[in-house]
Computed example of a mutant assay.
Amino acid sequence: MMAYPTITMAYLDMWLERGENMQVIDLRNRESYMQGHFYGAINIPFEELEERIKELPVNKILIFYCSRGSKSMLACNRLSRSGYQVVNVANGFHLYRGKYTATGL
């Protein structure tokens, strides 16, 4: 059984609209992030997550997404066991067609 919720892109849109106390983390590589990402998302590539874990706020819900959903699930598994409040975004950014996207920095 998972120790964290998995939400859809549409549900994340609702959270962004309401201004929930969260930090969205994009686990894709820098090039993919620069091409487009959720507004307000920080880029921590999955391969760098362990070494950059101290950059994650402990007082916010951490919303993880990647390209297709597998790396964000792995990140949530790891961090939920360490006590972080995490949420996985199902299916990844490649399916997102909402209004909360940004490009560049």
Rank of each mutant, 00 (worst) to 15 (best):
M22I: 05
L79M: 08
L56H: 08
Y84P: 10
N43V: 01
T8M: 03
V89L: 15
T6Y: 00
C66V: 05
S80G: 15
N77G: 00
F64E: 05
V87D: 10
I63P: 13
N59Y: 03
Y33T: 01
Q85E: 12
M9A: 14
S70I: 13
T101D: 00
N21G: 04
M2L: 14
C76G: 07
G104W: 00
A90L: 11
L56G: 09
T103M: 15
V87N: 02
Y39V: 09
T8E: 03
Y84K: 13
S32W: 09
E31G: 14
R28T: 15
Y4K: 02
V87E: 07
T8L: 03
C76K: 02
A102N: 00
F93W: 14
Y4M: 04
E51N: 01
V58N: 14
G19T: 00
M14Q: 10
E17A: 10
F64V: 09
R30Q: 10
M1A: 10
I25M: 04
L12H: 08
F46T: 00
R52G: 13
A10N: 09
V87M: 08
M1V: 03
L62M: 03
G19Q: 01
R97W: 04
M73C: 12
G69I: 05
V89Y: 06
M1W: 05
H37Q: 02
R68P: 13
R30E: 11
Q35N: 13
N88W: 03
H94A: 11
Y4W: 08
G36W: 01
N43W: 01
E47M: 05
N29I: 07
Y4C: 02
R68V: 15
R18E: 07
M34F: 00
Y65V: 07
P57I: 04
G40T: 01
E20P: 06
R68M: 11
G83D: 09
M14N: 09
M1Y: 02
M22V: 04
I42Y: 00
L79Y: 13
N43A: 01
N77S: 06
N91L: 04
R78M: 12
V24S: 10
T8W: 01
A41S: 10
L95N: 12
R52M: 03
R68L: 14
R81I: 06
S82L: 12
F64C: 01
G83A: 07
E31A: 15
L27V: 08
P5G: 00
I53D: 07
G69Y: 04
L12P: 09
R97P: 03
V58D: 14
M34R: 06
G83C: 06
E20F: 14
I25L: 12
R28S: 04
T8G: 14
Y96F: 01
L16T: 11
R28L: 09
A90C: 09
N91M: 06
Q23R: 14
H94W: 08
R28E: 12
I61P: 11
N77Y: 15
L79V: 03
K54L: 15
F38I: 07
Y96K: 03
N29L: 06
L95I: 04
K60C: 03
G83R: 07
I25P: 08
A10L: 06
V89D: 10
M2I: 11
L27G: 12
F38Q: 04
Y11V: 15
G69C: 09
A90P: 05
I61S: 15
Y11P: 07
M9H: 12
Y33D: 01
F64H: 00
E51Q: 10
E17S: 15
T103S: 14
G69L: 13
W15A: 10
R52F: 05
M22L: 14
K71G: 01
K54T: 12
T101A: 05
